[in-house]
Design a protein around this nucleic acid. Structure first.
Lengths: 217, 217
DNA sequence: CGAATACTTGATGAGACTCAAGCGCCGTGG
DNA sequence: CCACGGCGCTTGAGTCTCATCAAGTATTCG
């Protein structure tokens, strides 16, 4: 089953397009691997991705990292109900963001109904996405996880067959709950089986996407 | 890390108490193991648990089942943004529910602001809960999963040390992404180590809850 | 060109799943 | 009251997958 990797773009939530915020927002540039905010930080703003890729993640006591989601152009992330970010946000690549001040739930719900609907839709879809991701994490084999990941990246990318991976193997591993070695081995095995081609480490060509889909039944 | 097993009770979301719905709701009785609604059903209502326990789950193509959450007295479940239930809901035990008609997002957002806030809060907290659960599913060992499960059941139950499990081993396994054998073995091992006692299959006494907490660091 | 970084590949072992018995509790019926 | 089944739970043995440890290769960048 498909795993949605990111909250849908704003226009997916409201046919009429993105609602007008009271301010146009602040443009932020963030270099690759830099942190935008940390787990537990006050949620003063939320963000739209203009370019590049962002990941949200939690850090475990044993030093490992679990990536919750990848966000790319058009995606929105970082608004919280209770004024505190529950996940850290970091730049996967150099990226450009648009920051909007977040005044809390009350201001949104008391104001424009379309704005409220936009936020609510994001919250609900984010929940569905997180649930799918959790399901994949708990139940899938390594091959199933990698296949689902590739299909989702393909779906969100420009081409149906050529997938560009902006993130490294460690990011993929932390997203799927695997090790980099297992990710690498699984990709190599898929190439050996002719399911994919790997012209470069971060470029994948899907030769038989049905085979990938069949893995998750 | 603790795993929240259910959306908080309504009064946890709004200090002023549960908002008044336009209708008092319909009482529903459901026998153990009966299904309330299926995945994909139209989301005509949402529900409050009056007594007993409900589980929400998805069914995988290979016949396995993943339980998303257990809901008990006071919990609310079953409202969706897009008019369709994304998870099936089933009775774990005989239970009594209160059904409220769900007219979709617009009706909520256009009306009482407190009601909208109540729903939004539920959505956000549900997302946080699901995220924690997914994290546990992806990264924990069997012992970590079982320990987190027991601690959460204890926290939501009446006593700090005596935990009643309304659900069977299969339910626990499907919730934690394990097999019943592994759940059983893990519980037995914890008893051998003196961490817990098992006076009956569905009753657990926590003898050293700190040891359980330490497992998840 | 060299060094650092990222990725791949191999060997080994631990942990969980699978298959298969073996309890134990509880309700039913004799 | 006890014998009998049925069902849920536990336990055991073997297997498989993935994590770990350890090199080895490729790519990027100064």
């Amino acid at each position: 089953m498909p795993v949605s990797l990111a909250v849908p773009a704003p226009h997916a939530m409201l046919p009429a397009g993105q609602p007008a915020f009271d301010s146009p927002g602040t443009v932020i540039r963030l270099a690759a691997e830099r942190r935008l905010y940390d787990e537990g930080d006050a949620a003063r703003s939320f963000y739209q991705v203009i370019g590049g890729m962002v990941r949200t993640c939690v850090f475990l006591s044993d030093g490992r990292r679990q990536i919750d989601a990848f966000y790319r152009e058009g995606d929105v992330f970082g608004f919280e109900a209770d004024g505190e970010h529950l996940l850290a946000a970091e730049a996967v690549t150099d990226c450009t963001l648009l920051a909007h001040r977040w005044r809390g739930l009350q201001s949104v719900l008391g104001g424009d109904e379309r704005l409220a609907s936009w936020f609510f839709g994001h919250a609900m879809h984010g929940m569905a996405r997180t649930r799918r991701h959790g399901l994949l994490l708990g139940r899938g084999s390594a091959a199933q996880k990698v296949a689902a990941f590739l299909l989702e990246m393909a779906e969100r990318g420009g081409s149906d067959t050529v997938v560009d991976l902006p993130m490294g193997r460690q990011d993929i591993a932390d997203y799927l709950g695997l090790t980099i070695e297992t990710v690498s081995r699984t990709l190599s095995q898929m190439e050996r089986q002719g399911t994919i081609r790997l012209p470069a480490a971060r470029k994948v060509v899907l030769r038989n996407s049905d085979a990938l889909r069949d893995l998750n039944a």
